Amino acid sequence: MNMISTQAKKALNQQVANYGVLFVKLHNYHWYINGPEFLTLHVKLEELYTWVSEQYDVVAERLLMNHGEPYATLKEYLEHATIEEAKRGLSADEMVESVISDFSQIRKEMLDAIEHLETHDMTVEDDLLAQAKEIEKQIWMLRATLEK
């Protein structure tokens, strides 16, 4: 069985860090959301952090199956993530815009990584592509909630 490339391991670990930060951020927004869209967004944010948790585990396990070492501490996540922690005091719209921005960043990194993977990294490519497709759908849905 071929192991995945160093580039694939690096790309997966980047996503572990991003998903770790995003998981906490989505919880923060879920807890602190308020306003006229509370019921809808409270449920949506829970749906998103549940999905992120599942993908986070898939990515970390893919690394472990291929002798990689996924980041596993908050310190490592914050050092390696390309997205930032949640900020306090945001409006519901600002929270949604923040999630859209994070999802857009993560999706871009996934698609960039796919371009640089080696031929024996097909399973990693499949995972990243499936996640990028779901993220694209979530971005579309979140943008639709911002239209008044």
Rank of each mutant, 00 (worst) to 15 (best):
H27W: 15
H27I: 15
H27M: 14
N28Y: 09
Y29R: 09
Y29A: 12
Y29W: 12
Y29K: 11
H30M: 01
H30L: 02
H30R: 04
H30S: 01
W31E: 11
W31I: 14
W31T: 12
Y32T: 15
I33H: 03
I33R: 06
I33T: 12
I33A: 06
N34Q: 13
N34A: 11
N34L: 06
N34P: 02
G35S: 03
P36V: 13
E37P: 01
E37F: 14
F38I: 02
F38P: 00
L39I: 11
T40K: 13
T40I: 10
T40E: 02
T40H: 02
T40S: 11
T40D: 06
L41Y: 03
L41R: 00
L41I: 14
H42T: 05
V43D: 12
V43Q: 12
V43H: 10
K44V: 14
K44W: 09
K44A: 13
L45P: 00
L45Q: 00
L45A: 01
L45I: 05
L45G: 04
E46T: 07
E47V: 00
E47F: 01
L48S: 01
L48K: 02
L48R: 00
L48D: 00
L48M: 03
Y49G: 05
Y49P: 01
T50C: 04
W51K: 15
W51C: 14
W51D: 15
W51H: 15
V52M: 00
S53I: 02
E54I: 13
E54Y: 08
E54N: 10
Q55M: 08
Y56R: 04
Y56P: 03
Y56H: 07
Y56E: 03
D57K: 02
V58F: 12
V58C: 14
V59W: 02
V59S: 02
A60T: 09
A60H: 07
A60M: 08
A60C: 12
E61V: 11
E61S: 09
R62W: 06
L63Y: 03
L64M: 15
L64H: 13
L64G: 12
M65F: 15
